[in-house]
Simulated scan of single mutants.
Amino acid sequence: MNSKVVIFICICLSVAFNLFAGNCIDKETSTTVTIKGLYKAPESVHNGNTTILKGAMDGEYVEVNVQGVIKDFVLINLKWDDCSQELIETDIVHRIDTVRNETVVIKTFMPEGIPSEKIKWKNTSGKEHEFIIHEDGKSKNLWKFHLE
């Protein structure tokens, strides 16, 4: 067989393998976190696989749907500091080590003013993300985070 043909076949196989491996890795590590602010209990609270957390207040719900994997999910209380003019983290209320293809519902209140809670999590490579729980008329209380 001609050496140029062999080299061409090797290059084609290498490119095909890299494309296949890249697609598999992307599908395995791609995660979407969808957060919904709701005024009544979501249907997911009736699902036995849903984790339900008690927040700082009552009356509304925050539904966090994870498609993929996140690590170090925490619900944190916040307090406004007049001196520094910023929100400060006061304590961790709940911690979940790993959330994989499941839903977490937080029974809480979504304030229109100063927030009192936030959630934080890390993607599988360790990058930290956060969401401050609040009422937002612009987004219809629906947020999506596409993680790599």
Rank of each mutant, 00 (worst) to 15 (best):
C24S: 12
I25R: 03
I25E: 03
D26K: 15
D26H: 12
D26C: 04
K27Q: 02
K27W: 12
K27T: 05
K27R: 10
E28G: 08
E28D: 09
T29Y: 09
S30D: 12
T31A: 01
T31F: 04
T31C: 02
T32K: 13
T32L: 07
V33I: 07
V33H: 13
T34G: 02
I35M: 03
K36S: 14
G37E: 08
L38A: 07
L38G: 11
Y39D: 14
Y39K: 06
K40Q: 13
K40S: 13
A41W: 07
A41D: 05
P42Q: 01
E43S: 15
E43Y: 07
E43P: 12
S44Q: 04
S44K: 01
V45G: 05
H46S: 13
N47F: 00
G48I: 02
N49G: 08
T50L: 02
T50D: 01
T51I: 14
L53Q: 06
L53V: 04
K54S: 08
K54E: 05
K54V: 03
K54D: 06
G55L: 10
G55N: 03
G55H: 13
M57T: 13
M57W: 01
D58Y: 11
D58E: 14
E60F: 01
E60W: 07
E60N: 02
Y61A: 07
V62K: 11
E63Q: 06
E63V: 07
E63G: 00
E63K: 00
E63C: 01
V64A: 00
V64K: 10
N65K: 15
N65P: 07
V69N: 08
V69W: 11
I70D: 03
I70L: 00
I70R: 06
K71M: 02
K71G: 01
K71V: 06
D72M: 07
F73M: 04
V74G: 07
V74Y: 13
V74A: 14
N77H: 11
N77W: 05
L78T: 02
K79W: 12
K79D: 11
K79Y: 14
W80Y: 13
D81L: 00
D81Y: 05
C83N: 12
S84Q: 11
Q85T: 04
Q85E: 14
E86V: 06
E86W: 10
E86A: 06
E86G: 03
E86H: 12
L87F: 15
L87E: 09
I88Y: 11
E89Q: 14
T90P: 09
T90K: 10
D91N: 15
D91P: 11
I92L: 08
I92E: 00
V93H: 10
V93Q: 15
R95V: 01
R95F: 02
I96V: 06
I96D: 03
I96A: 08
D97I: 03
